[in-house]
């Protein structure tokens, strides 16, 4: 699956590329407006991760260009400009998602996964990991055919874990994924502990092996194998 990452900050770009490549995505990069323009018009991508402030131009103009050429790529805007109208303009111009900087890599990965799923498997969208089967549009999960009753939060948490299999997801990333950026962050991650604990309990009760491991005090890792 081919992605185009448009980002002018090399250090940030390097982490994103390295994380997403480990998720088995093929990543191409563009670090300025002209490069991005050329690549996105020449090639087809599953998803374009687009920074709005670029040397040589505004990311929103790239969106307009994409729209004009009727390119079918999904677009996730990542921007340091958190202004509300940027978000609205971006979404109006055909972007599929908006992820303000600074973001967590697992979050970006989950958003890309969700976008790709939405675009490819409309209606039937099944995820499989180990004995776990997840029907994303129906918001249903089952272990070896045995259905799980998950709360909305637990299901969201499961999706985040599934999109980042084998990777460590920090508690902060989970907290932000669950409560959005509106919630005030506490230094304690009671929420995260509680929801992970519940999800783990439900999985093991349904007969799944212990998929979710805590990695020291840092976060969790989902390993289906």
């Amino acid at each position: 699956m081919k992605l185009l990452l448009v980002e002018d900050e090399p250090a940030l770009l390097a982490s994103v590329v390295s994380y997403l490549q480990a998720q088995h995505y093929i990543c191409e990069v563009a670090t300025n407006y002209a490069q991005a323009q050329e690549k996105m018009l020449l090639h087809d991508y599953e998803c374009i991760v687009l920074d709005l402030t670029l040397p040589g131009g505004d990311g929103l103009d790239l969106l307009r260009e994409l729209q004009k050429h009727q390119k079918a790529a999904g677009v996730i805007i990542t921007s340091a400009r958190a202004a509300v109208d940027d978000r609205i303009t971006g979404l109006e111009l055909g972007a599929d998602d908006y992820l303000p900087k600074p973001f967590y890599l697992p979050e970006l990965s989950a958003r890309i996964a969700a976008l790709v799923r939405r675009r490819h498997y409309q209606g039937t969208n099944l995820l499989q990991a180990g004995e776990l089967n997840v029907d994303v549009p129906a918001r249903r999960a089952a272990v070896a055919g045995k259905p799980l009753t998950l709360t909305r939060t637990e299901f969201d948490l499961l999706l985040l874990l599934l999109a980042n299999q084998g990777r460590v997801i920090t508690k902060g990333a989970i907290a932000e994924h669950l409560s959005g950026d509106a919630a005030e962050q506490f230094d304690t991650f009671e929420n995260v502990y509680a929801h992970v604990k519940n999800l783990k309990r439900k999985l093991t009760e349904a007969g799944a092996p212990n998929y979710i491991r805590m990695v020291y005090g840092l976060g969790y890792r989902f390993e289906p194998n």
């Binding site: 940030l12 982490s15 480990a22 600074p102 973001f103 890599l105 697992p106 976060g219």
Partner: peptide, 20 residues
């Protein structure tokens, strides 16, 4: 605040990589 976002993004993603 804007200027802080990019360095913070780098910091965050590097930490995300570090824990891997």
């Amino acid at each position: 605040a804007h200027e802080l976002q990019t360095p913070l993004a780098i910091l965050r993603t590097k930490l995300d990589m570090l824990v891997q």
